[in-house]
Design a protein around this nucleic acid. Structure first.
Lengths: 143, 143
DNA sequence: GCGTCAACTTGATTCATTCAAGAAAATGGG
DNA sequence: CCCATTTTCTTGAATGAATCAAGTTGACGC
């Protein structure tokens, strides 16, 4: 797990100013993979005390734009954030409870798949979401 | 393109009552692939006159639950609906303008991919979204 | 230290979607 | 064919994630 000073270096490396909210958001995203904005707000406030939700939204957008975190949003879900970047991994999502787990990409680099007919689009990423039921929901449903 | 009576048979086949709003929504979804709810509301009203937006939401949910239409929602987009079902095809989405096109699935039946490590999930579908730029946005950006 | 510009605070707003209660209409039995 | 039942539609309000806007604070470079 990276340290505070690691986070500061990441921010400087991305030409972003180092602020307490930004470090706290990075810490939260690294510590809580796939957390939604609300959970991140909660984690940041536990760390720093009151911080405006607008600040968190701004920070998450800046970090996402800088490529320091990745934003994912399966259908029907609010935005979620994760720190694993650059490995083009995928996700398995539970249809019932929304639980998310990482799934390694067999290929690794994006785009890991190529479209049969790209309709002239310039494709840079193939996002895969595996839909199903997590172990807990699977048991609850079948019994 | 299916006829009104085809739509009626589809509805009955799914144990759904045949109503004018439902037939109109089916017509709209077949006629406007990847349309969002608002566009569908517009198309239905052009067909039937005033229909409440709530009715359209209800109908779309019923049709989706019955498997007569498929709901897709790429990250950052509102819900969109399409009539191609059962062939597990995928989509290419423009990051800039949100345009969507169909991409045939090489495998055909769901799930067309298998996860390396499914974390114990029971997976029934692998959804693939190809992200990139459509021809128009690609030209506009590079020039 | 000091100024500048980015980042944060405060407060309001948007808009897709859902909730709720009552009216209308579609199927099936009489 | 007509009525009862159940679903569907209408009307109107509410929810909640996310964004917008204006002003204040604070980080970095000199």
């Amino acid at each position: 797990m990276p340290t505070t000073s690691d986070y500061e270096h990441m921010l400087r490396g991305a030409a972003l100013r180092v602020t307490r909210p930004r470090v706290a958001v990075l810490t939260a995203v690294y510590g809580h993979p796939h957390a939604d904005t609300d959970s991140i707000i909660g984690a940041v406030r536990e760390d720093l005390g009151e911080v405006s939700h607008q600040a968190i939204y701004d920070v998450l957008r800046a970090l996402t734009a800088a490529g320091l975190v990745r934003r994912i949003q399966p259908a029907g879900s609010v935005a979620r954030y994760e720190s694993r970047i650059g490995d083009n991994h995928h996700h398995v999502v539970c249809r019932s409870c929304g639980a998310i787990e990482d799934v390694d990409c067999a290929v690794g680099s994006a785009p890991c798949l190529t479209a049969d007919d790209d309709h002239g689009f310039t494709i840079d990423e193939a996002e895969v979401i595996y839909w199903g039921l997590c172990p807990a929901c699977s048991t609850a449903t079948s019994s």
